[in-house]
Amino acid sequence: MSKQHASVTNEHKINYILYLADSTLILSHRNSEWCGHAPIIEQDIALTNIALDLLGQARSFYQYAATLIGNNVTEDSLAYLRIENEYKNLLLTELPNDDWANTILKQFYFSVYQYYLYQQLLNNSDEQIVAIANKAIKEVVYHVRWSGEWVVRLGDGTAESHQRMKNAIENLKNYIGEMFIAADFETALQIDVNNIQQQWQEKVNATFAEATLPLPENIFNHTGGKNGVHTEYLGYILTEMQYLQRTYPNAVW
């Protein structure tokens, strides 16, 4: 970040807001890949709705970050003109959709995390962050319910859906931990990741029990997203997303 007079806290705050923005934008991008291709129209609409909510949240965060950064930075320059190692999103959010079970579980993990995180942010000292969290949490309540109901439905549906959920649990298990390992900017902002983790785990345990699904075992934590070290997938996402802005620099759309 090329801000000359930024204090340490401001620097951390900007990075933290970008972390929130990037994670929501990238998961929104993945969800939007389903648009027109979901298993049934009603669910196509529901998932697109979540993509739209997440995109809206990302825009609020980017717009706020842009005001803190200054220098003619905009929501679009933040989304479209930063490269892979400047993105701070969770690795979980950039993973491919794979099947409906994997998509649902990714969303469920992330939404439950967002829910407890935003609850904590409601007490943040920054009014703007409180305002964004306050608006977003109403949406997230619905995302948790929608994805949680699907976890139960698929876990306790047919033998095939149960097996596919188990595969998804296996696929994603090493990307859970990153949510709860504090990056510098989280520590600086006094985000209590342990508290979020505890509540997250309780909610997941309860939902998995209802879904007759086993909890993940033998977990290894892949990390790096928060500090700009990503999977190979992110490069392709950004290549696609940023194509027009990169091809026609300074054009207005």
Partner: peptide
Amino acid sequence: TRAPSLKRKAILLAKIQ
């Protein structure tokens, strides 16, 4: 996924929905 701005992306998503 290739919409040129976040605003255009949101409008397009809502339209297709």
